[in-house]
Amino acid sequence: MSVIELEAPAEVRPRSRPQPSRTRGKAWQRWLSPIAVIAIWQLASSTGLLPPRLLAAPATIAATAADLVQSGVLPTAVGVSLQRVLLGFGAGAAAGILLALVAGLSRPGENAVDPIMQMLRALPFFGLIPLFILWFGIGETPKVLLVALAVSFPLYLNTFAGVRGVDGKLAEVAHTLKLGRAALIRHIVLPGALPQTLVGLRQSLGVAWLALIVAEQVNATAGLGYMINDAREFLRTDVIVVGLLVYSALGLLTDALVRLLERRALSWRRGFLG
């Protein structure tokens, strides 16, 4: 045992030390392969090897993106889609976190809420679309609800685990400090559950965009999904790719927002994480 423990760091250290400078100095190398792929793609399109019917050329896509922005088609579509995600996310997050608190803070609450949530979680929620259409028609409601449903589960599960994972020793401290139940929840339980809730938030935002994309494939008359579906009718692969890129950009953006929130809300862990 001791031999392994003694040898391992001695071997690892000299190897890991020069690494940061090597990668930092040649960071541009990481851009080489993506640029090469785009160049080959453009070449294939220009020579007619890749017909625009299958996939538009990068240059065409860039031009189309500019057109779509200027004509206002893309901003409008993004606005509609963003609204759906925000409404659905807001409703789903509120429901998920609220139910997690009900279940997490009391045994009767857990018995009432958790079995139902675990059963619903097992449902493939994209499979609910036909039912949702029957129940809510083809307007905004089923789309927003699908997003809300998708969002609520990761937040429920993570917040519930977070509440239950709060250090019992801190609850004892709260007791010796004569904190009441409300103060215990406010000062110990909620902040203690927050890191896990933020993990759930990141997961649920990822799922939110996925749910939106699926929901927008069904009978949308506006939004990014509609723009993509409409483009398919006219074999406009350039518009489809622009739509996909916007989806991924929005996904990355929201993820960055959550990470910013994490850094702010969990700054007390900074010293701990080093």
């Binding site: 801190l170 401290v173 709260a174 010796t176 400090l177 000062h187 902040p191 203690g192 927050l194 007390w268």
Partner: peptide
């Protein structure tokens, strides 16, 4: 009654002052 435990059991998401004033 007040208690000090073996591990200090400070609330990690409250600054030192916030720990002292907790429930005070």
């Amino acid at each position: 009654v007040a208690v000090a435990f073996q591990e200090p059991r400070l609330v990690p998401w409250k600054r030192v002052l916030g720990n002292i004033t907790l429930g005070l």
